[in-house]
Design a protein around this nucleic acid. Sequence first.
DNA 1: GATGAATGAGCTTTCATTCAT
DNA 2: GATGAATGAAAGCTCATTCAT
Lengths: 216, 216, 216, 216
Amino acid sequence: MPRTKSAETRARILKAATRRFGETGYHATSIGDLATDLGMGHGTFYRYFKNKREIFQVIVDDVPKRLRSLLMTERPDAADSLEAYRAQVGRIARRVFELLGDGPDELADVAHIIFVEAYGVDAELRGHVERGLALLATMTAAYLDNGVERGFLRRDLDVAVTASAINGMVIAGVRSLARSGRDGDAEQLLTSWSSAVTRLMFDGIGRPDSAATPGR
Amino acid sequence: MPRTKSAETRARILKAATRRFGETGYHATSIGDLATDLGMGHGTFYRYFKNKREIFQVIVDDVPKRLRSLLMTERPDAADSLEAYRAQVGRIARRVFELLGDGPDELADVAHIIFVEAYGVDAELRGHVERGLALLATMTAAYLDNGVERGFLRRDLDVAVTASAINGMVIAGVRSLARSGRDGDAEQLLTSWSSAVTRLMFDGIGRPDSAATPGR
Amino acid sequence: MPRTKSAETRARILKAATRRFGETGYHATSIGDLATDLGMGHGTFYRYFKNKREIFQVIVDDVPKRLRSLLMTERPDAADSLEAYRAQVGRIARRVFELLGDGPDELADVAHIIFVEAYGVDAELRGHVERGLALLATMTAAYLDNGVERGFLRRDLDVAVTASAINGMVIAGVRSLARSGRDGDAEQLLTSWSSAVTRLMFDGIGRPDSAATPGR
Amino acid sequence: MPRTKSAETRARILKAATRRFGETGYHATSIGDLATDLGMGHGTFYRYFKNKREIFQVIVDDVPKRLRSLLMTERPDAADSLEAYRAQVGRIARRVFELLGDGPDELADVAHIIFVEAYGVDAELRGHVERGLALLATMTAAYLDNGVERGFLRRDLDVAVTASAINGMVIAGVRSLARSGRDGDAEQLLTSWSSAVTRLMFDGIGRPDSAATPGR
DNA sequence: GATGAATGAGCTTTCATTCAT
DNA sequence: GATGAATGAAAGCTCATTCAT
């Protein structure tokens, strides 16, 4: 690998920071803690990052990047039938869960950092996250829009709000998965959530033959 | 200038703290900030609350109290048909949204405090919230259980996970409403969310006549 | 009693303060504690004493007054034989012990205030105590001087240092008595100390017939 | 300017603290004062000591260590005649005085810290000192016991109380020496005290030929 | 490049004191 | 005269950051 020694160290610091910020929290983690974890002098930290806030922001800003990379492979206008759409949703759901980390441990940390810690640092960083969530909603809405346009989703769907509601389920799933994190059976939980969310979306909770009033 | 009656001042401090913790965050808000907001000496704060953590916990612990009061009027086994159930869900949704604050401003702050800030203070407080959320999930699951038993909800529903997913939507709604808070039309948004969530739950997003594969 | 109401209250405050300062210490006793003990508002305290330091100083400065009153009845030149002197020392010893309080409880408090707390307040107050101890040493020296002059004490007595040494024993006795304070048998301990100190002074510790080398 | 080796700095802080606590008192000395004395930032203090109490306790707990080292060389059962005993007492007296500090200045401070300040910090520390003094009394009593057993001290000696009284004299001497500290002729004063105390103990204050009533 | 000793801004908390009622 | 709500000076302590080595 052509990486300089520096780049490696930087990555090591990032990894340790993600872990610590996720587990212990931003405020409760001191630069000294990080240095100790890494077995290096805490002054060294400042050779790789301007300050404590910077490394945190790097971690936070990495998530939208991953999200965008997801977009690349699953185009919003790819599905042209409810069947295809359902399949696509299933794929995306899985990938979103997988997106955030190399396994449930890092997922737990990143989820905690994004959904909790980032809010407690300062207003600007909070803005980053909120914009990230808005972006996620926009993306989800794009998929719904496609379905409405192609005619396989309800015409009267409140796309914006429904997109946010769906994201709410996804986030709940991520946090649940994160919480189970270090002990539970992550794979099993992931399957349960994917299945429950897609069924809720497509079939509703009512009994198939039960006469749910489709209109208002 | 000693004038105000104790209880009044205490309420004023609580209100200011809810606002500040909600907007600026727990860690980023110093007792001095609170005092400045209130136009009083920071020492005065300590005449009403033992310390910074205590006032935060008072705010947090107030929410379960409100939740429990909700339970009193909407029994989980009240509905005996999908129709009745749908109506009940609509009622509960509205009340949950209304539950948290005297208007969307305070809602925003309380929601933020509960869902975000409380996690970053300490493990004990985090436990409070997690138990609160678990309770909420249990409650939701009880309503689903009733539906499955009475036969108007799917037999194969993954009740636990589905309950969490539904709560995820509700929380997303609360936060969305909260975010709109200080400017948007709260009443309108509330209606949109209630409607979108119940339709998603009961009808799914697919077109009524579209042949969504009900099974797996 | 022609005392105004004020004088009574003042005395009550002084008594409570002596007790609290003695038991809990100057710094650890707040004006609020005193007020609580007395069942009055803490603002009232300031109607009787300028500030916390003042009441403490009043307590401290009361001791030299008591000491001086002792001088009035036991004149340094009263004894004209070793026998008379011995008797006088016995009387003084008893009175010194009794001097400081109405019983061992108050003794404990006053002793603690004088020998410990007074040093921790400020340099001026410390000066008061040191001057008080110096005065005590001067007084003791006066009694020794009389004995040397009248010829019943050793000619070569180092009066100043010996006086201080004797006072050291007395202080040790007072503190021991104070320590035993609230539980032990104060009367018994007082007798033991009086006796041990006078015998040490007059007879030495050696066996009567043992040939202690009187010279150096 | 990072330069000095840790251990050196720690010693410097200890020395400055001993001085300040001795002169100004524990409560009246702030960490900021110490830092100013040392010409360093107050944060630096906390790199060497956990908190204010800790450094105080380190100073206090150093004294028993020195005391124990004294015990090693002067066994309580070493003397077998009044002559030998008198000589031993003289030696011990000198060493006790020398024990506490590198010269009268530090002696003054350590003595003050032990006998005064330590009582005003908290109950636990007070306990340390009281146990230390009790130990000292026990040691002294052991020497007296030996004399009584071997028959060169009075049979009817109240050993416990007499030991405390003697220690009272020693402490008074230490404090006197300490007080003279920064100006007086320490060597001269030390000689005076050693001599006065041993003569008081062995010969009493009465004129040799004067008929002191040996019994009660 | 790495280090860690030093630093001080900044926070929480206490409590003596004031003064309107 | 009594009260206690309000106040802010002052203290202990933490930790991100700097910089001489």
